[in-house]
Simulated scan of single mutants.
Amino acid sequence: MFAGDPGFEVLGEAADGAQAVDLARVLDPDVILMDLRMPGTDGVTAIKRLAELGLRARVLVLTTYDTDRDVLPAVEAGATGYLLKDTGRDELVRAVRTAARGEAVLSPSVATRLLGQVRTPADPLSARELEILRLIADGATNREAAARLFISEATVKSHVLHIYAKLGVNDRAAAVAVAFRRGLLTVEDGGR
């Protein structure tokens, strides 16, 4: 897409985050388009490494993932922008130019997600609460969760109430839905 545009020069292409860091050190690009999930070194790790090395390149994340679990770590690592792969060509070209100037670029859904985090920061679930939430997503009752975790049913009920409060929901189905939206549960782990 960029190779045919006279306003851009494509300097290189990397298969993973480690290779992207190596190429950035040698080629000194203005902007790096970085995916997050790649074999080997992932995008967030690569973004952190680029920052540690003090490289001037701006990193514009271009990915299909927009959950809290993906967006926040990338932004915290130092990404200048975050776009989804369904971004149109004209918007992507504008975004690269904007990122090159050091200005932030966010897709609308990502901006909405970040604003939501700032307005109502999520109270993180404890490891045990996540464990129970995964069991709920798998269809376990409180009694079944208690048996699997070797704790009392009353303890499970207490954890479930804390999960509801932290996620701002009133029932199991809503808890699971919100957890998937926030990236606390993923399809890959089947709720686990």
Rank of each mutant, 00 (worst) to 15 (best):
L130Y: 13
L149D: 11
G139P: 06
E76H: 06
A165Q: 14
D35L: 01
V118C: 09
P6E: 15
L92S: 03
G168M: 06
T87N: 03
D138C: 13
D16G: 02
L55Q: 08
D70G: 04
V176E: 11
A145V: 02
E13Y: 00
D66F: 09
R192P: 01
A104K: 00
A175N: 12
V10R: 01
L53F: 10
D138G: 15
E52L: 12
A137M: 09
R128H: 07
Q19M: 14
R143I: 02
I32F: 01
D189H: 06
E13W: 00
A146P: 00
R119K: 10
S126A: 15
E9Y: 00
T45Q: 13
D189Y: 00
L115M: 11
P6V: 10
S158L: 13
V105M: 05
R49Y: 06
P39R: 08
M1H: 07
F2L: 15
L115C: 08
G78P: 05
M38H: 02
I151E: 06
R134S: 15
G116M: 04
P124L: 13
A137H: 10
L62T: 03
R172Q: 12
L161M: 12
T155M: 01
D138W: 04
R143E: 12
G183P: 13
G54D: 01
G116E: 03
D5A: 12
L50Q: 11
L184E: 09
M34S: 14
R148K: 15
R134G: 15
F2S: 05
E9I: 12
K166H: 10
A46T: 14
A177F: 01
L106Q: 08
N170A: 14
E9K: 07
T186A: 13
G43F: 00
V187C: 00
T112F: 06
D90R: 13
K48D: 11
S109F: 01
S152I: 03
A57N: 05
E52G: 01
A177I: 00
D5L: 13
L149S: 07
G88R: 09
G17R: 04
